[in-house]
Structure formats: C-alpha cells, structure tokens
C-alpha cells in the first residue's frame, strides 16, 4: 500500500536526509516536502496525506503548533514530531496533539520502526 507522506523541515539537509531514508525504507510512497508551517498547511489542504513528519524547531510557527493545525484539518493523519530536544514537556505536548515523537537526528532504524507501526495503524483504520 503506497501512502502519501509530508515532510516539513526548514533545513534542506534534514529534508534530504529524510528523503534518503524514505527511499531506502519505502521507495513506493509519495513524498511531498514543505519548508515551513504555512506551506505545509496549504499543501495539506490541497491533498490528503497519510503521514506527516514535522521538525519541531522551525522559525515562525513551530512543529507542535503545526501538528495541532493538521489534526484539526485531518484527524486521521498520523503525525510525528522530530526533535533533538527530548524533554518531558515537549513529549507531553506532542501527546496532547496526538503526535508521536522521533528524536533527532533520525536514524534509519528508528524511522523504520515508526513507519512499520504507522502502516499498521493506517491499515487498521481502513486507509
């Protein structure tokens, strides 16, 4: 099943790194990139995404705020927040908006685990 995944990060490097990892883990999936929260929302309104990977630390609106907005837009979208700042408050705030947490830098194994679990949930939800 080919899913559509949205990658949001202001760092080109990070987006490229994510692309590389995804190519290796899920080559068939469609990938769309956005550099900031506004762009991401605009894209999400245009088409429906199954999974979103959001960088927490972005200028303007941060990843948590974007996660909340995406949830309002499409509650079935699986959202993961990516950050090196692994602290209690951010973890709980992520949970509040229904987002998972991925520590940065994202390694391929870690991403792989996340995608496996995500696929399962999407299948179970009938997507």
């Amino acid at each position: 099943m080919a899913y559509k995944i949205l990658i949001v990060d202001d760092s080109k490097l990070a987006r490229m790194a994510a692309a590389k990892a995804l190519n290796s883990l899920r080559p068939g999936w469609e990938r769309v990139e956005a550099t900031n929260a506004d762009e991401a929302l605009a894209l999400a309104r245009q088409s429906s995404f199954d999974i979103a990977l959001l960088d927490f630390n972005m200028p303007g609106r941060d990843g948590l705020s974007l996660a909340a907005d995406l949830r309002d837009l499409d509650a079935t979208m699986l959202v993961a927040l990516v950050s090196a700042n692994v602290q209690h408050e951010i973890l709980s705030r992520a949970a509040e908006v229904g987002a998972q947490f991925l520590p940065k830098p994202v390694t391929e194994p870690a991403l792989g685990e996340f995608l496996d679990a995500a696929e399962q949930r999407l299948k179970a939800a009938g997507r």
């Binding site: 760092s11 490097l13 990070a14 090196a84 700042n85 692994v86 602290q87 940065k104």
Partner: peptide, 22 residues
Amino acid sequence: LELDALTELVNIGVSRAAASLR
C-alpha cells in the same frame, strides 16, 4: 547546503543542550 547542514547540526546540538538544561 553546507551552511544548512551546519545550521541543522547546531540546532540538534542546542536542542540536546536544552534537554540537558531542562
């Protein structure tokens, strides 16, 4: 891209520091 990479590295670095400070 190099600057971007450096920025990303520094951000990861200070984010870790933030977790530490917390």
